[in-house]
Amino acid sequence: MKQSFVFSGSGGQGIMSAGITLAQTAIAMQKHSTFLPEYGPEQRGGSAKCTVIISDAEIISPLPKKCDTLIAMNELAYAKFIGDVKEGGTVVVNSSRVKTTARDDVKTISVPVDDVALELGNVKVANTVLIGVLIGATGIISKDVVIAALSKKFKEKSPAIMELNIAAIEKGIELGSKA
């Protein structure tokens, strides 16, 4: 089984970070994964996109034309990439910023991840909430493994940041499984 994910938004929203977390978690689960970032020359605020592939078999091409799942963190990214989702695919939108949706041949999961992150204490964990939503909605990666990965990543920063991210994952999973 091979699945492709496109994370999209603008620089600073944690797009690359979310993509890498997904890929690393998949690898920790003995799957194969590739992560391909695409960004412009801007240092901040430009468009950010990354493609993550997760597969049980070795990945040959890392350049799919269409993705199974699109994650859109803002309106611009949604408009730009919604056409690249396979029919019957899944679209996770940050409804704090994406107000209109365009396709009814895909499953759309709307969660206001910015607002959820703000309620948790910091808008910066919106991307972590989003990974939680993805897990809750699709079960593509394991909750335990991603928490282990985030714990390792944030342990050195501070216990408070680590806990905030774990809370964000859990809240995301809760919202994602209801969607």
Binding site: A23, I27, H32, T34, F35, L36, P37, P62, L63
Partner: peptide, 8 residues
Amino acid sequence: CLGAIMEE
């Protein structure tokens, strides 16, 4: 692409 891609 191969310069930017991450894989094992």
